[in-house]
């Protein structure tokens, strides 16, 4: 490698590292804030005060109040608990479960592989909303059931990805070399397959956080997720959408919260992808 390329490489790696730390810190802050949201609210997010209803932003209520006089800032902060933590839980679950299913398929015989993948196709072919409606109809609404519905239709993406990545890895000479080095199937999966396919899966999961947050908010918006008065960004927007023209802050505050969170996780996902590319390391 010539000196110039080495320099360029170093600069790129350094700036990538800074980006990673920056977005990682932002995302960490967001998650920490949602975790400790109950301590961060300046007001009780459930306390109604009809005398103060639909008040514009002021020093006391930085984001104004909603139609029941509840402090919007507190409700947005409290809403992060439902919106962000349940999204993270959902994505963590589907990516881990889906990947295990995919790796299992790649390693199992043709019949089992076909069976699981057809099952995955079936879930994948379901329109998300229809499935969520069906789940809500059978099990009732609520955040848990919305998460359940989203999990059921989203794991196949990870199963497919993990399966195709694993199959591709299996073809590579180093897998054969590792087999000849005495690795059993589990050792092969743990030491070689997982580290090598973790990158694309992690990136997909990171980028999925934004999507899932939107979907969850969307389901709540339609009344299939969080039920009022539990603060959740999607349902908050839905509740207040007819106030958009007259009292925009009540709709825009949760909307902006969704926008910013989705953005941060997407940018983090992009940076992680670049970071995991082995050519960008060292």
């Amino acid at each position: 490698m010539s000196e110039v390329t080495v320099r360029v490489q170093k600069v790129r790696t350094a700036s990538l590292k800074r980006k990673l730390i920056f977005f990682g810190a932002l995302a960490g802050l967001l998650v920490a804030a949602s975790f400790f949201s109950s301590y961060l609210c300046p007001w009780d997010p459930y306390e109604q005060n009809l005398a103060l209803a639909k008040a514009a932003p002021s020093a006391d209520h930085l984001l104004g109040t909603d139609r029941y006089g509840r402090d919007m800032l507190s409700r947005v902060i409290a809403g992060s608990y439902t919106s962000i933590l349940s999204t993270l839980l959902l994505v963590a679950f589907i990516s881990v479960f889906g990947s295990i299913a995919g790796i299992f398929c790649a390693w199992s015989g043709k019949r089992l592989d076909t069976l699981v993948m057809r099952l995955a196709d079936m879930f994948l072919a379901f329109p998300g909303l229809v499935f969520a409606l069906a789940v809500a109809a059978v099990l009732g609404g609520g955040v848990q059931n919305a998460i359940f519905a989203l999990a059921a239709i989203s794991w196949p993406k990870y199963a497919r990805l993990a399966r195709s990545q694993t199959l591709a890895q299996q073809e590579l000479p180093y897998m054969q070399a590792a087999r000849m080095a005495g690795c059993g199937t589990l050792g092969l999966i743990r030491r070689h397959v997982v580290p090598n396919i973790a990158g694309p899966i992690l990136v997909t999961a990171m980028l999925d956080i934004g999507t899932m947050m939107m979907e969850l908010a969307g389901l709540s918006f339609l009344g299939l997720g969080a039920k009022p008065p539990i603060p959740e960004w999607g349902s908050m927007m839905s509740d207040t959408r007819n106030l958009l023209a007259t009292h925009p802050w009540v709709t825009l505050a949760p909307g902006f919260a969704i926008f910013v969170s989705v953005m941060i996780f997407n940018l983090l996902g992009d940076t992680v992808r670049d970071w995991l590319d082995p050519k960008n390391r060292r």
């Binding site: 590579l172 000479p173 180093y174 054969q176 070399a177 590792a178 000849m180 080095a181 005495g182 690795c183 050792g187 030491r191 070689h192 580290p195 090598n196 082995p278």
Partner: peptide
């Protein structure tokens, strides 16, 4: 019985060092 593969660089896991690849063999045995 061991084999040296047609493509030397590709016969090592890109995410492990060469030393890890050699040591893995010894550790497995």
């Amino acid at each position: 019985m061991q084999m040296v593969f047609q493509s030397p660089a590709e016969s090592f896991d890109p995410r492990c060092t060469l030393g890890d690849g050699i040591a893995e063999c010894l550790r497995n045995f």
